[in-house]
Simulated scan of single mutants.
Amino acid sequence: MVTRTHELSDADVDAIFHALADRTRRDIVARVIEREQSVSALAERYAMSFAAVQKHVAVLQKAALVRKERDGRQQIVHAELERLRRAQQLLDRYEQLWRHRVDRIASILDEEGP
């Protein structure tokens, strides 16, 4: 369900949360935000196979958090900053919701008094 054109669909949100649920994928996102990297360079940093790192990158691609571009024989991974901003905005809305709820609970408790 899409509520506005600039917001994420439910499927988008599911894909983003799924992608970021894994610590290796979160680390990959952090690394490519800092600077684009080849899949090979990323794979050197983890105690797993090149194919496993490729699979992590594919999950991040499916969530549109990163994109790959071929540069000769290498595949360079880039962060999709706009998509990451949208994910951050979603998390900000959740934070606002919970802050409002906490404030409301505090208000109710203050009304009841001792």
Rank of each mutant, 00 (worst) to 15 (best):
A11V: 15
A51H: 12
F50K: 12
A30I: 01
F17I: 08
I105R: 05
T3I: 15
K55W: 07
I16V: 15
T5P: 13
D110P: 06
E112H: 10
E112I: 15
A106L: 02
T5R: 14
R104L: 00
D71N: 13
R26W: 01
V2R: 15
L109Y: 05
H78G: 04
P114T: 10
R99D: 05
A19V: 02
D103E: 07
R70M: 15
A47P: 12
A106D: 03
L60N: 08
F17N: 00
V59L: 12
E44M: 03
D92Y: 04
A21E: 05
Q54I: 03
S38V: 02
E34Q: 07
D12A: 14
V102M: 03
Q88W: 00
R26Y: 06
L84I: 10
V2N: 10
A21Q: 00
T3W: 01
E80T: 01
H78R: 10
K62H: 11
S38A: 05
E80S: 11
M1I: 14
L97A: 00
M1Q: 12
R101Q: 06
L109D: 10
V2Q: 14
Q89A: 08
E111F: 05
A79D: 06
E112D: 11
Q89D: 06
A87K: 05
D71C: 11
A43Q: 05
F50A: 13
M48R: 13
L81A: 13
A11N: 12
